[in-house]
Design a protein around this nucleic acid. Structure first.
Length: 254
DNA sequence: ATGGCTTAGGTGCTAAGA
């Protein structure tokens, strides 16, 4: 069983790459973020023609999330019922007995931006909702773009980034609060190469110089974490022409 | 060095990303 998260940075632009990647990686569940498409423009037929089911919730220009699955998708929930939000950042569903939550956490922009307290309250509400979801669905996976690098190991230059958005203590505390629900950062269950990241800036040769951060995560509840045999970042599509700035993160379960 | 790319919307530029 392979569960994947990938921020595609516009599904309109990236659909060919998503289909190409799925052909090379026939995974079970692919959670995507930043589709940037209203639902009427979503390429449902193309994804279904590739042999997958898909559910989605989007908006114009910004945000938008979807779950692509090889297995039947049930009990779809759009957005956090505990958090009034016009932005389309969450979609959840039950797939193969697992509760799958696909989340696009607000970026926050900067600590002095009004988007930063929005990010923190959004994360607090996510925690409250996921706590209730785990009680109902012990087999739960929370996948997405968290816009948080949990540890200094997850930042190419921790000194330069210290205290900034994505690594600030309050954001890292919010990430820890999710782990405290009994979730495991599947990437850290295993020995990993140093300087493994999931996002690299388009500018300044960010990818070539591996100046990245690890902000895309697959969090697993205990029953799923116990079945997890690997978690890797696939850098391959980041090398393609006109790539997303994020790479897919793949967790494999027995 | 607060620049540097990329995308969307709309058609010249701004907003946003992380």
């Amino acid at each position: 069983m392979k569960l994947v998260t990938w921020n595609v940075n516009s599904l309109k632009v990236r659909l060919p790459q998503v289909l190409q990647w799925l052909e090379m990686n026939p995974v079970d569940v692919l959670c995507i973020q930043e589709t940037k498409l209203t639902d009427d423009k979503f390429p449902q037929a193309e994804i279904e023609a590739a042999g997958y089911q898909v559910v989605f919730t989007g908006q114009k220009t910004y945000n938008g999330v979807a779950i692509i699955s090889r297995h039947p998708i049930e009990a779809v929930q759009k957005n956090n019922p505990l958090f009034e939000d016009e932005q389309q950042r969450i979609i959840a569903a039950t797939i193969a007995g697992m509760r799958i939550i696909c989340a696009y956490v607000p970026n926050g922009q900067a600590l002095d931006s009004e988007k930063y307290p929005y990010k923190l309250s959004w994360l607090a509400a996510l925690r409250d909702w996921v706590k209730a979801e785990i009680e109902q669905h012990p087999q739960l996976a929370l996948l997405g773009d968290y816009n948080i690098a949990p540890d200094d190991r997850d930042v190419h230059d921790p000194a330069a980034w210290e205290g900034m958005n994505l690594v600030s203590p309050a954001e890292r505390a919010a990430f820890q609060a999710l782990l405290d629900l009994g979730l495991s950062d599947s990437f850290r269950q295993f020995e990993q190469p140093e300087k493994t990241f999931s996002w690299w800036d388009y500018r300044q040769l960010g990818f070539r110089l591996n100046k990245g951060v690890r902000i895309d995560h697959v969090l697993l509840s205990k029953p799923l974490a116990d079945r997890c045999t690997s978690c890797v970042v696939d850098r391959v599509p980041r090398k393609w022409e006109q790539p997303s700035d994020h790479a897919p993160v793949i967790a494999t379960l027995d």
